[in-house]
Design a protein around this nucleic acid. Structure first.
Lengths: 197, 197
DNA sequence: TGAAGTATATTCACTGGTGAGTATACTTGT
DNA sequence: ACAAGTATACTCACCAGTGAATATACTTCA
């Protein structure tokens, strides 16, 4: 594996990331990706066996970075558990205000490939979302929340709801609202309910 | 407007509905829609000025029926406000168990057209979601809920979260979980909180 | 050490097929 | 006869994927 080989692969993946995220999976051709990467389409086919394969690699490449981002938002927040959960949504709202923000790449890919439930990219997307849910559950468990799994799922639902509604309305206020709902649910679960939510 | 004309238009719309919903917007060609409708593509172009126009008409045709369905799920449910809200989610979970279920057509279209925020279909989708939210808010207001608009938004977030997560995981349990979260939030807002959620 | 062989990486030019959209002509009811 | 509606047959652009050839670098053994 020479250095120039891995560089080309990375350039393809970088181009695929930008284009797939910005314009959608089926809207982007491998010609466009090759052009953006500054190579030929045949080279793309040398490194990836098909477009489907590249779609999968695109999501794989986003898995850990996305998870790390959520984790950092949570960990760097001040306050108790409800506040730290709310911080995830506040940061998401901020991210969504950037003009290039186009929702969650995993969710959008799932929406496009809804007719191919067995597609490898769908499995990567599902696994990614499960990891987020498992991480949330672990945090709640560590904080002694009784029904930590139920609570984690509720947070996940609000988060993906925020992604979806913000894509439809282009309004970050939905993520803020999801944050207050999540905060309320966490507070109820923790047993420190107060109506300030 | 002769009868045969409106019949052809309806057949096109029916075909577009099925194909766009089943396979996605960009994945379906007007050739495929014309074939399914049993007419030629030129006839499609006689009734709709472009594919974008047909996409818009597709969503317009789903607007009222979808709203009516949610409304009926809510109205036909027994129990108090929290239970009636939960009933929406229970019914959604049931619908999602059908093999041909592919999520929310509005959300999936928004995901596909995320790079075209000004697309007419996006406006139809946004208006549809706003109508749902407004209806929920009106119901909560009528029941004397104090922060009825916040609560409606929270329910919307959970509903769209349920749509999204079920598309990713193909698991109706997410809608059930969203239902219990919604029930909890409604119960908190109504002030009749009990921890059985 | 250096020539011959092999694996890796890349290009150009192409194919078979499909996409949105159209020019033109036919049909049918009034 | 004429206007609305439909069909045939087409254009031009694009798309996923490929064939053949080439360049580069890494062995291997005389």
């Amino acid at each position: 594996m020479t250095r120039s080989s891995s560089t080309a692969r990375e350039r393809i993946l970088t181009a695929a990331n930008k284009l797939f995220y910005a314009e959608g999976i089926r809207a982007v051709s491998l010609d466009a990706i090759a052009a953006k990467a500054g190579i030929t389409k045949k080279t793309v086919y040398y490194h990836f066996k098909s477009k489907d394969d590249l779609i999968e690699a695109y999501l794989v490449s986003r898995d850990q970075p996305n998870l790390d981002l959520f984790r950092s938002w949570f960990e760097e927040a001040d306050g108790g558990l409800p506040d730290k959960v709310q911080a995830i949504f506040r940061n998401l709202a901020a991210a969504a205000r950037h003009p290039k923000w186009k929702g969650c790449g995993f969710l959008r890919t799932a929406a496009e490939l809804a007719d191919m439930p067995g597609h490898p990219a769908m499995k990567v997307g599902a696994a990614h979302k499960k990891k987020f849910e498992a991480w949330m559950a672990a945090e709640f468990d560590a904080s002694g929340v009784e029904r930590f799994q139920d609570l984690a799922r509720h947070v996940v639902l609000l988060l993906d709801g925020a992604f979806s509604t913000m894509l439809v309305h282009r309004d970050a206020a939905y993520a803020e609202a999801a944050g207050t709902a999540a905060k309320t649910l966490v507070a109820v679960a923790v047993g420190t309910m107060n109506q300030r939510a």
